[in-house]
């Protein structure tokens, strides 16, 4: 089966309220809150595209765009 690979984090800064759930539960510590308390992908190269942040975001502000890799 082809594995999902990260293409890009789409984080809607207008919708994000900075609760930090995505940061807390990211298994690879990819996300951080910036100085405005908005989620940002600080280490996108570590992302395994598990999409746990997308599923648990209460603000529906995160979308993980993926591409297939062999």
């Amino acid at each position: 089966m082809a594995k999902q690979k990260l293409k890009q984090h789409h984080i809607n800064r207008d919708w994000c309220k900075g609760c930090g759930i995505c940061v807390h539960f990211c298994p690879k510590k990819v996300l951080e809150l910036d100085e405005e308390d908005k989620a940002v992908a600080a280490r996108p190269e570590d992302c395994i595209a598990c999409k746990l942040c997308e599923l648990r975001c209460p603000d529906l502000a995160i979308e993980i765009e993926t591409e297939r890799s062999e």
Binding site: W15, C16, I21, L55, A61
Partner: peptide, 24 residues
Amino acid sequence: RDFLRERFFPHMWCPGCGHGIVLN
């Protein structure tokens, strides 16, 4: 996102409220 009425976003729930996760 196509199921949302995006004009009402960001929603009125508090930061971290679980209701948003239920909606999601």
